[in-house]
């Protein structure tokens, strides 16, 4: 399978309890997956492990069957070329413009600035942000800023988009707009993995994984 974890256990130090307790999971290309569960159930940690930001204490992450270590040079290359992130607290360069932020992932992939900004501009316009491309991100509202981050993720047409509670700080209307952009607006072949508390958001995904205390309690819609 394209993205898989095998027997993954993780804790942040010897003094901390296990956050993930022996997970096995496979994510197919082009799928939309919701990770649900209460706070502390391991959603964010699982996303970090899947996205090669955290090396699990035990077990392994594999891409197309090949194990990958988060700290390796190859992982950096994979993060640049195959993953995009959307975070709960919109993580952006607040003093840079919306267009500059939306171009970042493409620049990290090795595109020239002109090409990257052209693609990012189209994505921002598609998300209704065309009039705000030159505005500094710190002057944008929360919903606008999250759309910039989604544009950054989508513009790169990654293989996987990992979203950690992307609507956690948005109102209901904006939440639906953001989820539509993320799930329905994603390029063909791109998988979206969303960690969320919101059942409505999860309902838009084709597959829902419920986590509790670091284990998968249910896996529906495969």
């Amino acid at each position: 399978m394209p993205l898989s974890v095998r027997a993954v256990r993780h804790r942040y130090s010897d003094r901390h309890p296990w956050v993930l307790r022996g997970l096995d999971l496979e994510i197919a290309d082009g799928s939309s997956v919701a990770l649900m569960g209460p706070s502390g159930s391991g959603k964010t940690t699982l996303l970090s492990v899947l996205g090669l930001l955290t090396q699990p204490t035990e077990g392994q992450v594999a891409i197309d069957g090949a194990p990958v270590t988060a700290a390796s040079r190859a992982a950096g290359q994979i993060r640049a070329e195959q993953f995009s992130w959307v975070f709960q607290t919109a993580n952006a360069l607040l003093r840079r413009s919306a267009l500059e932020n939306a171009s970042l992932q493409l620049l990290a992939r090795g595109l020239g600035r002109r090409s990257a900004e052209q693609v990012a501009l189209e994505e921002l316009e598609r998300l209704g942000m065309g009039a705000l491309v030159g505005r500094r991100c710190r002057l944008l509202s929360g919903g606008e800023l999250q759309r910039v981050c989604i544009a950054r993720a989508l513009a790169a047409a990654p293989r996987w988009i990992l979203a950690d509670e992307p609507t956690g700080q948005l109102d209901h209307t904006t939440t639906l707009d953001v989820v539509d952009a993320l799930i329905d607006g994603r390029p063909v072949g791109t998988s979206v993995i969303i960690a969320t508390h919101d059942a409505e958001v999860a309902g838009r995904c084709g597959r829902v994984l419920r986590l509790l205390d670091g284990t998968i309690q249910s896996d529906t819609g495969r």
Partner: peptide, 8 residues
Amino acid sequence: LYLAMGTG
């Protein structure tokens, strides 16, 4: 943010 995007 830069590191998450694959920047070394």
